[in-house]
Design a protein around this nucleic acid. Structure first.
Lengths: 190, 190
DNA sequence: CGTGGCCGAACGAACGTTCGTTTGTTAGTG
DNA sequence: CACTAACAAACGAACGTTCGTTCGGCCACG
């Protein structure tokens, strides 16, 4: 086992935070996972709270990057939404720890950090709202639907995927993306 | 300030667990909320873990009761699903603390309790799966949709509602139920 | 007048963090 | 190519605090 970098520490913290929660994780626990003493972590980071910030910021970055890619493709509304869905699923499954920590431990940040993360999340959600509103305006989505509520519904589905999806199953990520997109656009009735 | 009952303690614990998490809550915190010392809680309850079990069991009970009511109405598939949706929303909004704790702190239960709660959750989910499968068989829902996946999607939407829905807004619970049901059956396209 | 809710002190364990020291790698010098 | 100064990672003990929990005594209510 070679020596560790700051990134190794953050990755380990993400794993622990995602599974045991921020308050359920001690520096000694984290050290055990990494094969060093809890106190040795302080050679890399200022403290436990700084680890949480780093993990969550990393998670936020993945989502922001995914949204940017979807928007910059400059496609029609439905295709953009499809990109947003598959991009979100990629983030949630390829960066499970950071995504999960970002999604469920944000309330344990200090107020200033929490405000910044909340703003990032609002910005990300706004991308979904905008593309849905565009789709409604173009007539491709139902004029009766509320763009904001629909975005919240869709994000609820996407944010929960990592809690049940088994990557090793007979269903792969692409099929999942397509199925989710089909569900949120056509619903149970089809 | 009159004297407290065991139920008061559990209700207070639910509130704290829901907002600060199980590990983010100390017995002294909880005592402060209730207006007594942390140590005094032990006059009502065996310990902290027992509080978590009680809160979660209460939450599980609400969901189970809702599912029972929906099934015993013996309606056609789509009407039953509508009852399941509105019943779930009632539980999540009328018993926010217990529902939230049940939904997100279950992993901090001891293995035996956790297994029992997991089983209860599977049973509840199965009610959704069954009614959707029935709807598919009757031809009222799309034959292309997978009942199990659809149930997970719908439950994802329902379980997230308490994180964003503002009861004081211009949108009431009944409108919300109808909107959610419309979304999951007809989707964005309509 | 006894039973039970509550207090307040106390317990040992675990917490996040600090600190002086040891260790292993790297860079520079002759 | 040997030697060494410098640096950063990791150790291990210790810090003050907070944790969950116990216990004896008090006081109000049934």
């Amino acid at each position: 086992m070679s020596r560790l970098t700051r990134d190794d520490i953050i990755a380990g913290a993400g794993r622990r935070f995602a599974t045991h929660g921020y308050h359920g994780t001690s520096m000694r626990d984290l050290g055990d996972d990494l094969g060093i003493l809890g106190s040795s972590i302080y050679a890399h980071v200022g403290g436990k709270q700084e680890l949480l910030v780093a993990v969550i910021e990393r998670g936020a970055g993945f989502f922001a990057a995914s949204a940017r890619r979807a928007v910059e493709a400059r496609l029609e509304a439905s295709a953009t939404l499809s990109l947003l869905v598959s991009g979100h699923i990629d983030v949630v499954l390829d960066h499970r720890s950071e995504a999960r920590t970002y999604l469920s431990e944000t309330s344990f940040l200090e107020p200033l950090d929490q405000a910044r993360v909340s703003h990032a999340r609002d910005t990300y959600e706004a991308v979904f709202v905008d593309v849905i509103a565009r789709g409604i305006a173009e007539g491709v989505f139902d004029r009766e639907r509320d763009a904001r509520l629909s975005a919240v519904y869709i994000l609820s589905v996407l944010n929960t995927i990592d809690r049940w999806f088994d990557e090793t199953g007979r269903f792969d990520k692409d099929q999942l993306s397509e199925d989710v997109y089909g569900f949120v656009t056509k619903g149970l009735i089809g």
